[in-house]
Structure formats: structure tokens, C-alpha cells
Simulated scan of single mutants.
Amino acid sequence: MSTDRRVALVTGGSGGIGRATAVRLAKDGLAVAVHYAGNKARADETVAEIEASGGAAIAVGGDVADENEMAAAFDATEAAFGGVDVVVNTAGIMILAPIATLDLDDLDRMHRTNIRGTFVVSQQAARRVRAGGAIVNFSTSVVRTQFPMYGAYVASKAAVEGMTLILAREMRGKDITVNAVAPGPTATPLFLDGKDEETIAGLARAVPLERLGQPDDIAETVSFLAGPARWVNGQVLYSNGGLA
């Protein structure tokens, strides 16, 4: 399956923002490795959707926090397509609770995926992405909006922002950009889970464009960073419809 196309590896690519991103990058002409943690069937569905539109894709599995499994995912991507040019780190989990009552096991679970997982994938990307490539990590607009209940999640994503901006400086001389996308309220299962209709409507009204974001809105931002945005580096882009 080796190809001369640019190649993207999208973690969490089997659903939500990750799936929309994988499909969008394939439409942009990239070959895509669709990563999944546990649901291979959904990853295979994303691969099938890409291939039905004339794109090239494979599914790769692994725990993002396990360096050996992610090294194997990168190996599989390189074996299939000849290299890696873009790495998009959408994999993450979100558990909401007041800081005073959050179960510390949930804190550890979230930080293992969101912090260690992002670090492990970023480390592999820093070693393997080819010149002219891009690394895109994921934060959240709540780092800035500071909604109650999000303390532990925001702590993990603030860490992602910090490591992203430092990695951008560490990649000096390699012609590789490193940025983070910080979505606002976006209609994905991760965001909608556990929220009643009144809460969801209130968050939609808080956005000047008066709607929730859609996964395709965020994928568009990633597409910009992965392709034409060669002068955007070491930044956090708030893709949130104008939410403060």
C-alpha cells in the first residue's frame, strides 16, 4: 500500500472529532491511519468510508499511553504508506465533577490518557514525522472559560498546551509545526454525555454564533494546521465560534 501521498495518523480516529478529522484529511488527499483504542469495528467503518470516496486508509490499534503499542501503530503506518507527515492527537477522555468530590481514580484515568497519552504520541511524532509535517494536539476552550466541574479535565488539557508549545520550540530546524486546537462546545458523544437539554441549549446560546460546534468544524481547523498553515507554529487555536 506504499504511496507517495502525504500521510496522517489520527489517534481516536474511530469516532467524534477524530473520525471527522480522518475523513477530512483523506478528502484533502492524505493517506490516513485511523487509530482506535478498543473499537476496531468503528475504525474499520471510518476506513471503509474513506476508501469508498477514493482515499487510502488503514486501521491501527493501541493504548495511546503505552509507548510500545504506539510505536507499533507508527510502524504499521510507515509500513503501509512509507512514512508519517501529520499526527493528530484527538484521543482523550473527559470526566466531570467538582474538584472537592472527584474520585481520584478518575483523575488518574484522565491524566493517563490525556497527559501521558499525548506525551507518548508526541514523542513518537517528534522522532518520526517527516520534514514539512505537522503535529496537532488537542486542548479545550474550557482552559480559558473555566466552567465549574471541569477542573480535573482542564488540568490535563492545560498540561497538553504546555507540552505542545515546548515541543514546537524543540523541533527547531526540522520544518515541523506543532500546534494545539482548543474546541468549544462540540456535538460529540464525549461532550453530550451526561448533560441535559437545558444545559446543552445554554452552552449553545453562550456562543455568538448561537449553536454548538460540529465535528466537521473542528476538522476544518485541523486541516488548516495540517496543510497550508506553515507559518502557524507553537500556538493554541480556539475553534469555538467566538466563545469567550
Rank of each mutant, 00 (worst) to 15 (best):
N240K: 03
P183Y: 12
R172M: 02
R230Q: 04
M94Q: 14
L243G: 02
V47N: 06
I135N: 00
V222A: 01
E51V: 15
G18K: 13
T101D: 15
L96N: 09
Q146T: 03
D28K: 02
A41G: 07
V88P: 00
A37M: 01
V87C: 10
A155Y: 03
K157I: 08
G82M: 04
N114I: 04
N68I: 03
L165A: 05
V32G: 09
Y153M: 10
T186H: 13
D196F: 11
G173A: 02
E198W: 07
N39Y: 12
S2H: 14
M110K: 04
A152T: 13
R42Q: 14
A43C: 05
E49I: 13
E161R: 13
V10T: 07
V142F: 09
A131K: 00
A79I: 01
S122N: 11
H111T: 09
L102C: 09
A37N: 10
V86A: 01
E220A: 14
T11V: 11
K40E: 15
G213C: 12
V87L: 05
V129P: 00
F81Q: 06
A37W: 13
A152L: 08
S53R: 13
M110H: 02
V84P: 00
V64C: 10
E197Y: 02
V23I: 13
I166V: 13
A155I: 11
D175H: 00
